[in-house]
Structures are given as C-alpha cells and as structure tokens.
Amino acid sequence: MTGLVFEAAAPARAGRRPQRVRRARLWWLLPPVVVLLGFFGYPLVLVAVQSFTSKSGALTLSVWGDVLGSAEFRDAAWQTVLLALGSTAGCLLLGTFLALAVAFVPFPGARALARLVDTLPAFPSFLIALAFTFLYGSAGVFGAGGFLYSPWGVLLAEVTFYTPFVMRPALAAFGQVPAAQLEVAASLGARPGRVLRQVVLPEALPSLASGACLVLLLTMNEFGIVLFLGAKGVTTLPMLVYGKAIVTFDFPAASVVAMVDVVLSLVLYAGYRRAAGAMGSGGGGGGAAVDKA
C-alpha cells in the first residue's frame, strides 16, 4: 500500500521539479535583464522621448518633420550611405584579394601578415586617422594635403581599418575548402580562374557576406575617423548627432538623428545576423562540379 502511495506521488514530484528549475532560471535571468534595461533601455527611451519634445518642452511631431525635411539631414544621410557602401566594397575587394593571397599563394611573411590582420582591430580607429595625417597631411611625409581632408581620404582610412573584418572570415572560409575539390577541378583541366569562381568563392560566399554586413554596420556608425580627419564637407549621421548635441545644444534634433541611426543600425544588424546564420549552416555552394575545360 505504501509503495502505491509513493508511486502515485512520484509523477507529481517529477512535474514540480521542472517548474522549480524554470523558476530558478528566471531568477538567474533577472539581474542581466535589469542591468540591460537600466544601462541601455532607459537611455534609449529617454532619447526617443526627447526626439518628440520641442525646445519648449511640449510633446510634438514637428521636430521629426523639421529634421527629416532639412537639407542638412539629407546630405548627412546620403554621405553616410555613400561612405559606408564605398568602404564596404573596398574592404570586400581588398580583403578577399589578401585572403586569397595568404591562403593559396605561398610567400615569405604570409603568417606574419595574417597575425598583423588579427591585431589591427584591437587598435582604436582614430589611430589610423592619426597615421594618415603623418603620411598624407599638409606637413606629412607625402604631403597629399587636400586629398586627406576630402571624402576620398575618409574612404581610404575606413578601408584600411576595416579590411581585416572581411579578411579574417574569408581566411577561415578558404581554409575549409576541401583540397580534394581543388585537385579534382585541376585534374579536369579547369584553369585557376575557373576554380576560383566555381569552387573557392562559392564556399566562402557566406563568410564574405557576413564580413561585408559587419563592415557596413560599423562604417555606418564610424565617428572617430571622420572627426579626427576633419574632412571638409563630410558630415555623416554620427557627426550630425555630435554637432547638434555638443555644438548647438539642439538635443531634440540630435535625438531624432540618433533614432534614425539606431533604426538603420538595427536593420543592418539583422542582415548581418542573417548572413552569419547562413555561414554557420554551411550555405556555400562550392560543391558544384567543375566541367572539363
């Protein structure tokens, strides 16, 4: 009889145990959620509220209309997009080329170059701008002068700094290309260019897409390089936020620009996560056979 009682109570205890586990997990989850809401969510809410507040303190939509309809905002958004796209394209081309050279073209110093690429992202971006000032500034080694303080100078600095963010995942992807596929393609008479197009690059496509999305996200929000170079006529969205908030003390307008930048960043981050997910699931298409040349 006692055994029957214990057997009947066992399922009830087993049902209560998962509930206690779930409650314990919720308690452990509570501190990081509170910290996240306090240090990130609350300031973001304040910025969002400020974007709907006029200088007199009244809630209004006129601030959004004034900012979004201004030529200053349109020019800053246009320059931000152009610089981000140009930097991403440059990083993609240069990073892919360097990764191919390191992975498939043996030369002295290849490992040293790969290690250097690993260390570059550890430095702050304004160091690149400082180095460019010493090289291409008005009193620099090469004395390029006006070039450095133009959009092209900002573009070159961003490509130099952010290329490792494409090169590193590309190197990892090229290292995973099966040697058997390359040997089969070569035995079928395929030329190196064709092997590159049909075997190597399809395998690395998710990694390249992930790196490109990350560079696009970072360059859209780049502030240090643009500020340090002081390029004439180059005003990006982060620079516009800085100017509105720090220079003119127009906090409602600065909040509107900041919210637009946050939305763009979230959209780009979603694209980056999508590309990273494709890379993790092995979305490359390099398994296609190479026809005999």
Rank of each mutant, 00 (worst) to 15 (best):
G3H: 13
L4F: 04
V5A: 12
A8R: 14
A10W: 14
P11M: 02
P11G: 03
R17W: 06
P18E: 15
P18V: 15
Q19E: 15
R20Q: 11
A24C: 12
W28G: 05
L29C: 10
P32V: 02
V33K: 06
L37S: 12
F39S: 10
F39N: 05
Y42E: 11
A48D: 03
A48H: 11
Q50Y: 01
Q50H: 13
S54V: 01
L61H: 13
L61E: 10
L61F: 15
V63P: 11
W64G: 05
G65M: 10
G65F: 12
G65P: 00
G65I: 05
A71R: 10
E72I: 10
D75Y: 08
A76T: 04
A76E: 08
W78P: 00
L82N: 06
L83D: 06
L83S: 09
A84F: 10
L85P: 00
S87H: 08
T88H: 09
A89C: 03
C91G: 01
L92N: 08
L92G: 10
L93N: 00
L94K: 02
L94Y: 00
T96L: 14
L98M: 13
A99Q: 13
A101L: 15
P106N: 02
F107V: 02
A110T: 04
L113D: 03
A114Y: 10
T119W: 14
T119E: 13
F123A: 13
F126Q: 04
L130H: 01
A131Q: 06
A131R: 04
S138A: 07
A139P: 00
V141E: 05
F142G: 01
G145R: 14
F147D: 01
V154D: 09
L156M: 14
A157Q: 07
A157T: 08
V159H: 07
V159Q: 03
V159F: 02
T160L: 15
T160P: 07
F161D: 01
V166H: 08
Q176T: 13
Q176C: 07
A179G: 11
A179E: 11
A179S: 09
A180G: 11
A180T: 13
A180D: 15
L182S: 01
L182T: 06
G189E: 08
A190S: 07
P192F: 07
P192E: 05
R194Y: 05
R194E: 10
V195Q: 12
R197I: 10
V199L: 11
V199Y: 06
V200N: 06
E203D: 03
E203H: 15
A204F: 13
L205G: 08
S207H: 06
G211A: 02
G211Q: 03
G211T: 01
A212H: 07
L214I: 01
L227Y: 07
L229Y: 06
L229D: 02
A231I: 09
G233N: 09
M239A: 03
V257Y: 09
M259I: 07
V263C: 08
S265L: 03
S265V: 02
V267H: 03
G271T: 06
R274G: 12
A275G: 02
A275Q: 04
G280D: 14
G287R: 14
A288K: 03
D291L: 08
